[in-house]
Every structure is written in C-alpha cells, then in structure tokens.
Write a protein that binds this DNA or RNA. Structure first.
Lengths: 353, 353
DNA sequence: TCAAGTATTGCAATCGATTGCGCAAATGAG
DNA sequence: CTCATTTGCGCAATCGATTGCAATACTTGA
C-alpha cells in the first residue's frame, strides 16, 4: 500500500512538505501544493489513519454500545446518533453488548483499546452492568454518556426518557376513556422513580376504583400465556398497557388469534412509538420519547465533554419528556360484561367486511 | 493514559519483555510473566491498539457497509455478520452509505484510511455505485465481498439470493391458487437475470391467460396511490406481489383502510421474511432467503481471501436459494367479480367479530 | 549593496507498540 | 573443569504519519 514517503519522493519533496500540502497548509506554495495533491490523487494515496491517529493522539471516533440491533427500537437510534456524530466530524464504532449484557464490559474494553475519543453507552433493561469498567474509563479521561436509566448514582452524564410521565399519560388515557380494570404487560420495573409503572400507577390512583393486574412477559410464549391468563379471568381487563411496542405487537397477535377485537373488547397501548406500531391492525396507540432528542442530546453532551475536558462538573442528567400518540388501538370499553371466550370460526385473521 | 513503558518500568524489565509477557510468550519465565500481568492488571493497562495496529500492519477489523440501518431488513443481517466476524476474531466497523448511496464511495474511502483488513459491502437497490472505488480497493490488496446483486461483471466475490427463483415460487403459488390477474408492487427491476420479476414472470407464463400489472412504488404515498389505482381498475388484480415485506406491510395497511379484506378479496405476498410480516394482520406469506447463510457465506468468503491473499482465482459467486413461507395473506380468489369499492362504515380497523 | 523580514522547505523527534537478533546466564554433557 | 546448548532477556529498528524548530531562499526598503 502506497504511503506518504512515496508521494513525497515522486514529488521530489520531503515528507513534511507532502504532509502539509495534503493538509492544505498555507505554508506550502500553491504550485507545490497542487502538484503534490495531484500526485497523491493519481497514485490513489489515502492517509493511513492508524499511523495518523497514533501521532495526533486522537481517533476522531466515538464508541456506541447498544444491547442488540435486532430489537426494532435501536436501529433508528443508531441512525440518528450516527448522523449527529458524522455531522460533528466523528466516526462511529458500533458494539453490540448482547441482550444478556455479559459482554458490556468487553465492549468497553475494546473501545478503550481502540482509543476512541468518547463513548455512548445505551443500557439494556438490566441497567448498567459494567459500572466498574465505565468508571475506570472515565477515570482514564475517556468521556462517556449513558443513554437510558441506571439505578444508583450514575458515574457519568446521562440522558433518558421520563418514562414515569409516559406511564402516567397512558393511565390517564385509560381512565379518561372509562377503563377500570387494566393490565400491565411487560418486564418488572427497573427504572426506579422514572419507571413506566411508577407513573402509570400514580395515574391510576387519581381515579378511585381502578384495579390493576401485572403480567410479566418478555418472550412470545410468555405473552401468549399472559394473554390467555388475562382472558381466562372472571373479569378480564378492558385495557392492556404493554411495556414496549414490540410486546404490544405480540399481544395484538395473540388477541387476534383468540378472536378478541381491539379496541372494542380490549384496548392496547404500547411504548416507544416504533414504526411497527403503524403497521399493526389496528394502528397502535403508544408513547413517544423523541428519539431525535435523545440522540442529539447524547452526542452533544459527549462532544461538550470532549471540547472542554477540564469541565469536570458533576454528571448531568437530561430527561426527555414523553408524548402520547393516540391511534386506533384504544377506545372506551364496550361494556362491563366479560369477553366471549368461544373461538370464532373461519379465518383467523382480521377483515373489515 | 498508561502505556507499556510504564508497566515495564514498574516491573523493572524492558519493554520487549513486558510486551512478550502480556502476549503470553513462552520465552518469558513464568514468574516474570505473572508479575508483569499482575502489574498491568492492577494499573488498568490496556494495549493501545492503534499503535499495535500500526506495528503489526493489520487491524483485525472488517468494514461493513450497508445502505441504511432503519430498513428492517438490515439489523438482523448486521447482527449475524457481527456474530460471524467476532467469532473469527475480527471487529466490525459499520458504515451507513445512505439510501441515496452518494456516500458509498466515502464509506469505502474511510474504511481504506482505517486500514480495515477486509470489506463487506451490501448493495442497495441501485446496485453497486462505487464500483471504481471498490476495484481500486481490491487492487490495493484489501479483499472485499459484495452482498446483493450488481449489474455487469462484479469486480469481487459476491453472494446474493436467487431472487428469480423466489419470484418464480410466488408466481406458482399464485397460479396454483387460481389467480389470473396479479399485480407487482415495487421498484423497477434491477437485478438482471436474478431479479424477482424475471422469475415471477417466468412462473406466470407457465399458466396461460394470466395478466400482470406493474405498479412502481417505494414510499408510503406511492403505495397508497398504487393501491388506489389497482382498486380503481375495471378488473382489479386478485393478488399482489410486493417486492419487499415492508412494501407489503404498507400495502396491507392501505388495503385495510380501503376496507379490502386480505386474502379474501386480494392475496398479498412479500419478500424477505422479516419478523414484521408475522405481526401483520393477516400474517404475511413471503419469500425467505436464509440470512444466516448470507451472513456466514459472506464472512467466510472474506476470511478465505484474507488467509490466502495469494489465491487470486476469479471472483466467486455464491447464490442462496429461496424458500416460500405460506402464511395467512394468500388464498384462492373468492370470485371473479370486482371488488366492492364502497367504503365500509364504522371502525376502520380489523376485527374478527 | 546590505540588513531585515518573510515565505518555503527540511530535519528529526515523536506517538506506543512488536520483534529479529544478539548477548549473557544457566544448564548439561563429557 | 570446559565447552556446547538452552533459556531468558534487552537493544534497537520499525510501522506511517505530524509538527516544532531551524535553515534556506527570496523580497523589500534604505
């Protein structure tokens, strides 16, 4: 592979001159600069960033750690963060920590070895696993920002959605519509005072006589079981709050297979406002946490730390407000009678006719 | 940041010894090796990969270029490729070329500057845009493999799905069910003899008296218009072959809004077998091109070239066979009469009752 | 014509690791 | 006890670029 010395030789100048010419330094005469640039172009020369990075002690690269890319929540986040980072002149190095998160520490270690200039770490539902590794990293001068809630005192800047308010909005939506028996479908709460469940319950309590039932579920099968359980109750809920749109999607599928119509018999609300929700049938009412804001806040916060590493103020916390998107999957409860449980005949899919 | 020299000094040995000890070289006595490793661990030392990469002339990194991450087709591909690469001891550097692909060349250039050991380039619907940049890269000794079809003579190894056969399977499925008026929804063909449309038409022609109509569409609005157009025809098609599952999803949404039931009035088939299809209502019949195979073939081919760069056999072409997944969105055409075009009243969503 | 000032360019150190080669110490054989 | 081996370790070169400083060439004004 061709290197700077080759270009310098061809142009009959020193490496220093070649380097400066390619960097458009005004200290090089215009003729030589153009000559060198032309030679470099013709030779197909591209600077060796690994050598350059070593010399300038910076990689102009940001590390991004996310749990998994297959969860439909993350791709857009990645895209947005990538856009912001590239817009600011940084490359992105993506690492998948895995949903089990055993490798969150490995990712951080890899990023440190690569000498990335900064790190954005998106926590999974388990919260921050590699707290120690992260603290050590910032101690070594690599700024980081957390995206998502972590329990305890966060060691670094962090931006996260106000899930509690989101849950509150959902609860009010339910009670405003007249629902009095509601179910919560999803993982156990993990976001402390900002958890969706916290706000949801707060919202429910503002209306007397509302009962709630929690059905933990993460996988398709668990959702299936959970829904069956709910439908089998004496007094099934008239509304379901799914912790995430993907869970809501599974729930809708199960309900449909059980011939329960949405929202007539059961209202369903999701969380995250994924595009997926608009493909569902009916389109999903959900809570939106502006991902654009999340992404740009995270990147900007990180870049801020990068610009002035001296600025050692305590970790900031940026909270993104939620917004309820009411679509088709919620309505007033049809009646107080229990849901018919006999399987419908014929096609198991929906139709308008 | 702490470096090798610091460790060496603390241990009272030379840098060479420290380096070899950390690399578990047998040429270092066990006592010293463990001493040095302990010191490094306690000091929180991590090797500087950028220095190391420069010295060993390899980054152990593969570049992956995809058009966009928000298209639900790509996340799983990325995940699978990442798994394969990491399993083989390589890191992954992800670049998004953008759907417009203006930046495909930029991505390649960036990867070259970073001195990645190899590149996997996933083409967009436009095919290979940066052909020149790619050829130059391989000329400079960076092996690459293309994922997806390109027109003309491919300059490098390539793996792609046999879309034509996929299209053929769909066509046969349609004609077997008794459909005689079918529509194709999607972009214009771009994969030459392997295009979905080619095989689809071949399949249709094996049954006499089948008419086809092509409706180009990429965006939501275009789908909307296309569907409206189809429904407005004297004799609307009884089956739609959408070029991708995402298009099929949009089409289903539009049909639903127009109160056309699937599959009774119109059958719909997608392509790609995304998870999305199983959330649709009804669940989508679609064509699967084993993404696992795609990913592992691509990575293995690349690694093969990496191991024996001397092996300069002409570019290989690996073709992945498709498989039809019949689900709920297809059935026999109900009748030969045209679809009722009066909007249905009441809720615009589906229900089983 | 000479001094002062400016515009260009090159020398050489540097970033942090790896590794071929040589030297010294330890071991073993005769 | 001496010489040949083996074992353990360090010297110094190297990867490819950047950059402070010194050096040279070229202007300009007096």
């Amino acid at each position: 592979m061709i290197k700077l010395a080759d270009i310098a030789e061809q142009a009959g100048v020193s490496e220093s001159t070649a380097s400066r010419a390619l960097a458009n330094s005004p200290r090089i005469s215009a003729v030589k600069r153009e000559l060198i640039q032309r030679i470099a172009l013709e030779a197909g020369y591209t600077v060796n960033q690994v050598a350059r990075n070593l010399r300038v002690q910076s990689t102009k690269t940001l590390g991004l750690v996310i749990p998994e890319i297959t969860n439909p929540f993350f791709p857009r986040l990645v895209q947005l963060i990538a856009d912001s980072a590239i817009g600011a002149g940084y490359r992105l190095q993506l690492h998948l920590s895995g949903v089990s998160q055993e490798s969150e520490g490995d990712c951080l270690a890899a990023l440190r070895e690569q000498r990335v200039d900064g790190v954005i770490l998106v926590t999974s539902e388990n919260g921050l696993v590699a707290r120690e590794a992260l603290s050590q990293m910032v101690a070594f001068g690599v700024p980081a920002v957390l995206l998502g809630w972590v329990s305890g005192e966060p060691p670094v800047d962090m931006v996260f959605g106000n899930d509690a308010t989101g849950g509150y909005l959902v609860a009010k939506h339910f009670t405003d519509l007249g629902h009095r028996r509601v179910a919560i479908l999803g993982a156990v709460p993990h976001r402390g005072p900002f958890d969706r469940l916290v706000g949801f319950r707060k919202g429910l309590m503002e209306t007397p006589g509302v009962t709630e039932i929690v059905v933990p579920a993460r996988t398709n099968e668990e959702v299936r079981l959970g829904i069956d359980h709910l439908l089998g109750l004496d007094k099934p809920p008239t509304a379901i709050f799914a912790y995430q749109d993907s869970l809501a999607a599974m729930a809708c599928r199960c309900l449909r297979q059980s011939c329960v119509s949405i929202p007539e018999e059961i209202s369903v609300v999701g969380f995250d406002n994924l595009e997926l929700g608009t493909y569902l049938c009916p389109q999903l009412t959900t809570v939106d946490l502006s991902m654009e804001q999340m992404a740009s806040c995270a990147v900007e916060t990180l870049l801020g730390r990068l610009k002035t590493p001296s600025f050692r103020g305590g970790p900031n916390q940026i909270v993104i407000p939620p917004q309820l998107f009411v679509r088709e999957s919620t309505s007033r409860p049809r009646s107080t009678q229990s849901i018919k449980k006999t399987p419908c005949e014929g096609a198991s899919h929906c139709a308008c006719d």
